[in-house]
């Protein structure tokens, strides 16, 4: 599913990732763990196609990412994102935020996902009218709407309390059980309980 081949990355002259090679199989729940500055966010950015590695190649479903002509469409169809901060657009309702991410053929999924995530009653509310936990559930719904093959989550519970964190873990686990590959970068070691695979990073290298 995902294959990283000799990936290195530099910010200016500073090297943050060192020749990383690994594979992530389909339907895995991967936990990217590491201290601050270990390079996990950079690695997540590269794996999620938001960042081109300075060296090496990334393959997703056998496709070389650097050779894909329209990365936007690739990203919209194959990848879902959850960020530490919910990053919902505040002048759009919950429904509209999810619809913004949905491709035309997946718009029919919106109501189903809202119901599954128990936020259907929030669909016409604006992000500033719901709680932090509810916002993150909306962010999960937005990531799931296109039924992506992979979901990348960067500190998805970083701004949530323990109860809401548990809800988000469960949602991600359910997605994985449904066949979606989930890659989570986090400080929160509780995720390890849900993970099928753990990639530990230190100083830009996999331990």
């Amino acid at each position: 599913m995902i294959k990283a081949s000799n990936i290195s990355h530099f910010y200016g002259k500073e090297q943050v990732l060192y020749d990383l090679s690994f594979e992530i199989g389909s339907g895995q729940f991967v936990f990217l763990s590491g201290e601050s500055g270990s390079g996990k966010s950079t690695l997540l950015s590269i794996l999620s196609t938001l960042l081109q590695p300075s060296k090496g190649e990334l393959f997703i479903d056998g496709e070389i990412i650097s050779e894909i002509k329209n990365i936007d469409i690739f990203r919209q169809n194959r990848v879902g994102f959850i960020f530490q901060f919910h990053y919902l657009i505040n002048y759009l309702t919950v429904y509209e935020n999810i619809a913004l991410a949905a491709t035309e053929d997946k718009k029919q999924n919106i109501n189903k996902i809202l119901t599954e995530l128990k936020i259907a009653e929030l669909s016409s509310r604006y992000p500033n009218e719901i709680s932090g936990g509810q916002r993150q559930r909306v962010a999960v719904a937005r990531a799931l709407v296109n039924e992506p093959k992979i979901i990348f989550a960067d500190e998805p519970t970083g701004s949530l309390d323990s109860n809401n964190s548990l809800i988000v873990y469960e949602l991600l686990k359910n997605a994985q059980k449904g066949g979606t590959t989930v890659v989570v970068a986090s400080h929160d070691m509780n995720i390890e309980n849900y993970a099928t695979e753990v990639l530990r990073l230190r100083d830009g290298k996999i331990l």
């Binding site: 469409i73 990203r75 169809n77 960020f83 990053y87 919902l88 657009i89 937005r142």
Partner: peptide, 14 residues
């Protein structure tokens, strides 16, 4: 900027 970043991350084209 943040809003445009979200759109780009969601796969919306330039």
């Amino acid at each position: 900027k943040e809003e445009f970043g979200i759109m780009r991350a969601l796969g919306k084209s330039r």
